[in-house]
C-alpha cells in the first residue's frame, strides 16, 4: 500500500462520498420540512388560540403553567390550570389524575387530550417539561428572597 499526497482515484472516492452525503442531507431536509408539524411534539398556545390546532382530535399541546392559575378540586384528583406562552396566548386545561413530580406553576407542561371548545383542553395525560437550569435548593431560595423568580427566563 502506498501513501502520499492524495492520488486521483482516492480523491474521486472522497468526492463521491461528499456528494452522497450532500444529496442525502438535501433529501432529508426536504422530508423534515414536509413533516415539520408532525415532528413537533405539541401545539403551542399561539397555535391553539389561532385555531391551528384541530378540535375533537387527540392531540398534544404544550406551554407554561400560568402562576396562580392552578385550581385543584377538594373531592377528586381533578385539576384545572392555564397554559400560556408568556406572550399573551393562553388556554385552559382540565385533567383528572396524578401529576408528575415536576408539575408546578411556572414550569413547562405537555398535555395529551382533546381540544373541546375554544381554549378548553380536556387532558388525559400530563407530562412535565423541565428546563435546562439546575440549582441547589439554597441558591433557589436565596434568588427568590432577592426578588428574582427561581425558574425565571425560559
Amino acid at each position: 500500500m502506498k501513501f502520499g499526497p492524495m492520488k486521483a482515484h482516492r480523491r474521486t472516492i472522497l468526492v463521491q462520498i461528499a456528494l452522497l452525503v450532500a444529496l442525502a442531507g438535501l433529501a432529508l431536509t426536504f422530508v423534515l420540512q414536509a413533516l415539520d408539524s408532525n415532528i413537533n411534539l405539541f401545539f403551542s398556545p399561539i397555535q391553539v388560540v389561532a385555531g391551528e390546532a384541530p378540535h375533537g382530535e387527540r392531540i398534544r399541546v404544550g406551554g407554561m403553567v400560568e402562576e396562580g392559575s392552578i385550581e385543584r378540586s377538594d373531592r377528586s384528583l381533578q385539576v384545572e390550570f392555564d397554559v400560556t406562552d408568556m406572550a399573551g396566548s393562553t388556554f385552559r386545561v382540565r385533567y383528572t389524575g396524578i401529576l408528575p413530580d415536576l408539575f408546578r406553576a411556572g414550569q413547562g407542561v405537555v398535555a395529551t387530550g382533546v381540544l373541546t371548545e375554544d381554549r378548553l383542553f380536556e387532558a388525559e395525560e400530563i407530562l412535565a417539561k423541565h428546563d435546562e437550569k439546575y440549582m441547589p435548593p439554597e441558591v433557589a431560595l436565596a434568588l427568590e428572597a432577592g426578588g428574582k423568580a427561581a425558574g425565571d427566563g425560559s
Binding site: D36, N40, D131, E132, K133, Y134
Partner: peptide
C-alpha cells in the same frame, strides 16, 4: 422543533446553566 426534552445546559459561548 417543540420537544419534551429540554435544551442543552452547556454551550461554548454561554455560562453553564448550573
Amino acid at each position: 422543533w417543540f420537544t419534551l426534552h429540554q435544551p442543552a445546559s452547556f454551550s461554548v459561548t454561554e455560562k453553564p446553566a448550573m
